[in-house]
C-alpha cells in the first residue's frame, strides 16, 4: 500500500464543554493513503460527519475537538498537524490540499452569486497571481471536467438541477487539484440514476487525477462498490476496518453484518434482509462496555462490562473492535477488569 496522505490519530470530538459535554467522536484513528478511496459508513448519529468536520476544523460551536492529531503529509515537505495550524496556514491548506464535497447538494452554493464567481473566488483566494481571464478559463475547464456545458457558468445556483449543483461542487472541489477530497454523503439528496452518473464520473476523475477520497455515507452498498477500504463507525468509534472485498464477504463485527444485511445485493446469492433492531445509542448515556451490545444479537458475557479495543484479530490485515474476536474473552472476564489486559 502507498504512503499515507492523511492520518487521523486518536481524534475525539465533543459537543459542549465541561461535564455536560457529549462525546460524538471517541478516540478515532484512521489513515488515508495517497490515491485510495476510504469509505466511512455508519448510521445517522454515528459521528461520521462530525469526524469530517472535526478533522477539517469546520465544526460549528458548540463542537470542539477535544483531543488527537490530524496529520497531513504534503507531496513534498514535512507533515503538518492540521489541528495545530494557525488561521492563515489553515486557510492556505484548505481546499488547495484538502477539499470537501458536502452533504447538502442543494445548499452548498451561495444563492446570490453566479456559479463562475464561486468557482473563481476560491482560485483567487489561493492563487494571487491568477488573472480574471485565467480564472474563468479554469472554471470553464472544470465545468467540462464534470460534464456541464460551459454556458452554465453564468447561471445562478437556483437555475441548475440538483445533480448539476452537486457536479459543480465536485468541480469546485477539484479546482486546486487537492490530494484529498472528503465527500460527506455527496449523493444522498439525489435520485439513484443521478447518483450512479455522478459516482461513475467521480471514479473516472479519480483515476485521472489521482486524489485520495474519504467517502462518508450511510449507504454501505455504495461503499462496497466504490472504495478500496471501508471503516465502520458506531457510537463515535471505528468498530471495524477492512478492505472493501473482505468486509463485504466476511464482516467480523455484528454491526457490520447488520449493515450489510440491511440492503439487497444486486448480484450474487440471495440474502435475507434483516436490518438492525433497536436505535442508535444516546450519546449522552452511552451503554457500558461495547456501545453496540444492547442491540447485538451475539452479545455475551464481557460485552456489557468492558469496552473492546480496535485490534487486528490474529494474523489478519484488518481490525475489529469486538469481543467475539478476542480469543478467550469470555473466560478471562472473571479475573480481569481492564480491557487492555483482556486482549490477547
Amino acid at each position: 500500500m502507498s504512503e499515507p496522505v492523511l492520518e487521523i490519530k486518536n481524534l475525539s470530538v465533543d459537543y459542549g464543554m465541561g461535564p455536560d459535554a457529549v462525546q460524538a467522536v471517541r478516540d478515532v484513528s484512521l489513515t488515508l493513503h495517497r490515491g485510495e478511496v476510504l469509505g466511512l459508513a455508519g448510521e445517522s448519529g454515528s459521528g461520521k460527519s462530525t469526524l469530517a468536520y472535526g478533522m477539517t476544523r469546520l465544526l460549528p460551536p458548540p463542537g470542539v475537538v477535544s483531543g488527537g492529531e490530524v496529520v497531513y503529509h504534503p507531496q513534498d515537505g514535512a507533515p503538518v498537524d492540521i489541528l495545530g495550524l494557525n488561521r492563515p496556514q489553515l486557510r492556505k491548506l484548505r481546499w488547495s490540499e484538502i477539499s470537501i464535497v458536502f452533504q447538502g447538494a442543494m445548499n452548498s452554493l451561495n444563492p446570490v452569486h453566479k456559479v463562475v464567481t464561486q468557482l473563481c473566488d476560491v482560485i483567487k483566494a489561493h492563487d494571487k497571481r491568477s488573472t480574471p481571464a485565467s480564472r474563468r478559463a479554469r472554471a470553464a475547464e472544470l465545468m467540462k471536467l464534470v460534464g456541464i456545458n460551459t454556458d452554465r457558468l453564468d447561471s445562478y445556483p437556483h437555475q441548475l438541477s440538483g445533480g448539476m449543483r452537486q457536479r459543480v461542487m465536485i468541480a469546485m472541489a477539484l479546482a486546486l487539484e487537492p490530494s484529498v477530497v472528503i465527500m460527506d454523503e455527496p449523493t444522498t439528496a439525489l435520485d439513484v440514476v443521478m447518483q450512479r452518473q455522478i459516482l461513475t464520473q467521480l471514479a473516472e476523475l479519480r483515476e485521472r487525477l489521482g486524489f485520495a477520497v474519504l467517502f462518508i455515507t450511510h449507504d454501505l452498498s455504495l461503499l462496497v462498490e466504490l472504495s478500496d477500504r471501508i471503516a465502520i463507525m458506531y457510537g463515535g468509534r471505528i468498530v471495524e476496518e477492512a478492505n472493501a472485498r473482505q468486509l463485504y464477504r466476511e464482516p467480523l463485527h455484528p454491526y457490520s453484518l447488520g449493515l450489510l444485511k440491511s440492503f439487497p445485493a444486486l448480484r450474487g446469492e440471495r440474502r435475507e434482509l434483516t436490518g438492525i433492531p433497536g436505535s442508535p445509542p444516546d450519546l449522552r448515556a452511552m451503554p457500558s462496555g461495547c456501545a453496540f451490545h444492547p442491540r447485538c444479537p451475539r452479545a455475551f458475557e464481557p460485552c456489557a462490562d468492558r469496552d473492546p479495543v480496535l485490534a487486528a484479530p490474529e494474523d489478519k490485515t484488518r481490525s475489529v473492535a469486538c469481543w467475539l474476536h478476542v480469543p478467550g474473552a469470555g473466560r478471562t472476564a472473571e479475573n480481569s477488569t481492564s480491557s487492555t489486559t483482556a486482549r490477547s
Binding site: 468536520y53 469546520l58 488561521r87 452548498s108 444563492p111 473566488d121 476560491v122 483566494a125 489561493h126
Partner: peptide, 18 residues
C-alpha cells in the same frame, strides 16, 4: 451563518472578511 454555503466558504479557505 448556519447555511451550508457558509461552511463551504470556510472550507474553501476564503478570508474571514470575504
Amino acid at each position: 451563518s448556519q447555511e451550508d454555503y457558509i461552511t463551504v466558504a470556510h472550507a474553501k479557505g476564503l478570508s474571514e472578511r470575504r
